[in-house]
C-alpha cells in the first residue's frame, strides 16, 4: 500500500494543531457571540464538519486513496446525511401543526 507513504509525522502534528485551534473556537464561540440556539448549533456543526474533513482526509488518509474509494465514502456520507436531515425536520417542526390539505 503506497498511499500512506506521503503522510509524514509533521503533517500529523500540523493537523493536530489545526484540530486543537478549531476545538478552542468551539469552546470560545458561545462566549464571543450571543446568538440564538439554532445559530449556535449551525456554527458548532459547521466547525465539526471541518474537523471531520481534516480527520478523514489526513488521519484516515482518504486524501491519499483512489478516487473510486473516495466516491464510495462520499456516497455513504450523503446517504447518512439524508436520514439526518429528515430526522432534523421532524424534530424542528414536531410541535407545529401544518395541515397540508387545507
Amino acid at each position: 500500500m503506497e498511499h500512506t507513504q506521503t503522510l509524514t509525522e509533521s503533517v500529523f502534528i500540523k493537523v493536530f494543531f489545526a484540530l486543537l485551534a478549531l476545538t478552542i473556537i468551539t469552546i470560545a464561540q458561545p462566549y464571543l457571540m450571543s446568538t440564538e440556539v439554532s445559530q449556535t448549533v449551525s456554527i458548532q456543526l459547521f466547525i465539526s464538519v471541518i474537523k471531520t474533513v481534516l480527520i478523514g482526509a489526513y488521519y484516515m488518509h482518504l486524501k491519499y486513496e483512489s478516487p473510486l474509494f473516495r466516491y464510495i465514502v462520499l456516497v455513504a456520507v450523503i446517504t447518512l446525511s439524508i436520514f439526518f436531515i429528515i430526522t432534523a425536520f421532524d424534530a424542528v417542526y414536531r410541535n407545529e401543526t401544518y395541515d397540508f390539505f387545507s
Binding site: T26, I27, Q29, P30, Y31, V37, T40, V41, Q44
Partner: peptide, 9 residues
Amino acid sequence: PLFYIIGRG
C-alpha cells in the same frame, strides 16, 4: 459541541 457547548449559547 452538542452536549457541552450548545447549552452555553
